[in-house]
Design a protein around this nucleic acid. Sequence first.
DNA 1: ATAATCTACAACCAAATGGTTGTAGATCAA
DNA 2: TTGATCTACAACCATTTGGTTGTAGATTAT
Lengths: 114, 114
Amino acid sequence: MVVDQHRVRTDRVFHALADPTRRDIVRRALGGEHSVSALARAYPMSVAAVQKHVSVLERAGLVTKIRSGREQLVRGNVKALVEARRALDRLEEVWRSRIERIGEILAEEEGSSR
Amino acid sequence: MVVDQHRVRTDRVFHALADPTRRDIVRRALGGEHSVSALARAYPMSVAAVQKHVSVLERAGLVTKIRSGREQLVRGNVKALVEARRALDRLEEVWRSRIERIGEILAEEEGSSR
DNA sequence: ATAATCTACAACCAAATGGTTGTAGATCAA
DNA sequence: TTGATCTACAACCATTTGGTTGTAGATTAT
């Protein structure tokens, strides 16, 4: 299905963001490029662990790696972030239109009772 | 820590949203109240499984259960959704201010080279 | 040339996740 | 009253997750 692709991507983005270390990596990577080992020095875990986090972020499209000599620079990708926000907005829209519906019904009742 | 609470809540919200069934439950619950078993009929899984999903959403604050006789009505909670969006916005802001910084530097160079 | 650094990746492990079935209590309908 | 429905929750299971250590190749620095 076509819808599935989007669904899986949404799954990945939200899952990637559901971890404080990964959110922090995204934050740093959006502010500028950082090598994997430079990132690793910021957290109380092994380089391999951070590598895995970066890999999760990469598969979610939140981050891109760019080779530069022996190091791999991680750069944040704002587009994936915007996509995630739009998914939230679509949910919110459901709520908003329900409220509007209720408002209309109330308005009608007001009208017919006077 | 104070920060921890917010971090954990953010973790929970994003984790809760990282599943298509749960996003769909939130969608329905934002549109109106549904009992757990009514929700369960919409998915190819057991009632117990849906109960667990609802429970995850509830702990994330995305949904509230309201007893009504023998059934438990699930209602979407837009506030948690807004919180999640704000977390995304804060990330995006990091990117935005970097771009601005770059813009300023470019503008300066333009100025000094003419 | 050698040593240090950065990355990749495999193997392993404990805990969490997402599902199942089964049991039991409450509420509602016949 | 009896039977059906709705919910809660425990026990179980396979898979995924998030960490570890260890090994090895590439690149850079001395």
